[in-house]
Design a protein around this nucleic acid. Structure first.
Lengths: 352, 352
DNA sequence: TGCTAACATGTTATCGATAACATATGTTAT
DNA sequence: ATAACATATGTTATCGATAACATGTTAGCA
């Protein structure tokens, strides 16, 4: 099938010529800078309308040295969390008049890091949002990033002085979850963690461990298993944990996908949730309210998180614009999670 | 906290000067066009390395009239499906050396459509992927889009001559699901649809209806409910359907999120799945294997779908590059779904 | 020896816009 | 009446790169 298209791009010159003015005047009309007489303005606007002229942001970016575009580097887009964050980023960027240039990372190949950053810089992004979970490999890189020509905001990374970081307080969330289980009467509380080279997974685990210790309970290695965030890994972990730690009466799972598998596995074995086993997840994905039983979970708002990152970044960009040679002030933001109490942990009978 | 940064951008001029050659020669070294002597090449490369020079894609885009950037317009990024598709798009784009300029739509405001397209064109994208579900409002728009200066590929839209469309065969998928339920012995088969102004939702419903009719079964309005893809709407729809159509022994649900709610609701009411009620979902999200019971579902591969869209688009771009004045050939691609049979429908006893 | 082709490099024009500067007229204030 | 300013518009330089063209070697071959 053949389509009829190929419309030549209309440039500022075409408009200028058609309106009988200089390109500068057209530019003035478009941007409302400086003076233009009413008649001229009208004439130009008519021509613009008639020819369907749209200024090339590209050319403008070149001369103005800014593109009104933000670079976003994401990881694990196929998972719900990161894509909800991206959604939040997109919303806020839109609101503030920025577009997003997207790049995705799939592994932590340290060589690709520079390549990715370069490809963004080559397109003149005004700033970068780095939403790649911190692990041992890229930590080193982040340390040495001081000298980019544009501001950068990190997400899901440990806050450190000199960097702008926006992340959720996973440690607090884990404490809330574990404390809640204690309050429901659980005394044998297990944990299924995320991959422990992720900073956030370590934090969640630490929050669980510390809370138990503070409550005077012993924590041994048989009480936890490591997963990789996926439901599949959650199922495997649950199986092992049930076998190894049968007295478990509560479990804190590091994300909702894995918690789903715990619920299913419990169901399959005839373990009653929450009566015999209370379950608390993490993330607060919308579906968690419709698990059976509905899942108690630590809710974070990725939408908000993403928006916050954009705000921080744009602030830095504007500060830099205002005084190009001044050093930029960085700030770290910790967003607080909330606990959504649902059926999977409610009204547990005191076991023990 | 204060960070030390602000590194001036290195331009081709800096390199040329430092190496004692013209900018043209630097350009030749970078792009490997034309002849450069070994000594000069080496000297330039050293300087490039030393100064950390990266060519500005922006400037190159301007002169070459192409940006190696694709515009992507998505809808409902917060849902799993669209973001998995985006993931597929990102992967393939990366593989082919393109970047993505992302824009998201949240509603079908027809005025925003032009604005969105314009903002992409102003940045010189080489082509556009339009992944916004077709509904009554934007259908009209799609009809009149013939005259863009760049190729465009539509997703999740009804194939029509003269347009490049990449979508999944929802109708076939729905047929497969319904047929499978029939084969399991179900005779009272209900349906929970997506929002019916979505083309794909209508197709899935039609596939269900046609299959039943073809099997000689009556289809009445009490047998189906409309949802909006969310688990919440699925729960509400399930409730109504159970009340209104109690003899139902099988149900085809238009996506997995809603199917999750059906499983939960059934569990809550003591309806045994699959013995009393067989359930089939749609999408094949990874979690569906860990629902309880695990969900039979029509699996589509959004990764593949997204990749296919990029391939189509890039082909069109290259065709246009090769012969700028030739009309572009369009093609539509229908990706086939597969049925994943799991516990929620397996070995149903013949009811009726 | 002289001519052509391959090699090597530089100069100028260009992409589409805005910045910086220049110029011309009308208006206001002193 | 004239400086000082606001209004209105045009001209030239510029952003960072590549295209198109020009020029100068060197090598190979008739």
């Amino acid at each position: 099938m053949i389509v009829a298209d190929r419309v030549k791009r209309v440039t500022i010159k075409d408009v200028a010529q058609a309106a009988g003015v200089s390109t500068q005047t057209v530019s003035r009309v478009m941007n409302n800078t400086s003076y233009v007489s009413i008649e001229t303005r009208q004439r130009v606007e008519e021509v613009v309308e008639q020819l369907g002229y749209r200024p090339s942001t590209l050319a403008r970016s070149l001369i103005q040295q800014r593109s009104y575009t933000l670079g976003v580097v994401t990881f694990g887009l196929k998972y719900i969390g990161p894509s909800r964050t991206l959604n939040g980023i997109a919303d806020k960027a839109d609101e503030l008049g920025y577009m997003l240039l997207m790049k995705k990372m799939d592994n932590f190949d340290i060589n690709r890091i520079d390549e990715v950053i370069d490809s963004l810089l080559a397109r003149q992004v005004d700033g970068i949002i780095w939403d790649v979970p911190e692990n041992d490999e890229n930590r080193a890189w982040a340390q040495g990033i001081k000298s980019l020509p544009v501001p950068i905001v990190f997400m899901s990374m440990e806050p450190r002085p000199g960097y702008s970081v926006v992340s959720m307080d996973s440690y607090l969330g884990a404490q809330m979850a574990t404390k809640h289980l204690l309050e429901q009467g659980c005394r044998q509380i297990g944990h299924i963690s995320g991959p422990l080279d992720w900073w956030e997974a370590r934090l969640r685990m630490q929050g669980w461990r510390d809370t138990l210790t503070k409550a005077g309970l012993q924590v041994s290695n048989k009480q936890w298993e490591q997963g990789n965030w996926s439901s599949a890994s959650g199922a495997a972990a649950a199986e092992k944990l049930f076998a190894r730690y049968p007295v478990m009466d509560g479990v804190f799972v590091a994300n909702d996908q894995m918690a789903l598998s715990v619920l299913s596995e419990a169901c399959r074995r005839g373990i009653k949730v929450p009566d015999q086993l209370a379950v608390v997840g993490f993330d607060g994905i919308p579906e968690s309210a419709y698990f059976y039983p509905s899942l108690t979970t630590v809710s974070q708002d990725p939408q908000l998180l993403g928006g916050q990152a954009v705000l921080s970044l744009v602030e830095m960009i504007q500060a830099q614009q205002a005084s190009p040679n001044r050093l930029i002030e960085t700030q770290s933001i910790l967003v607080l999670p909330t606990l959504l109490v649902r059926e999977s942990s409610r009204s547990v009978q005191i076991s023990q």
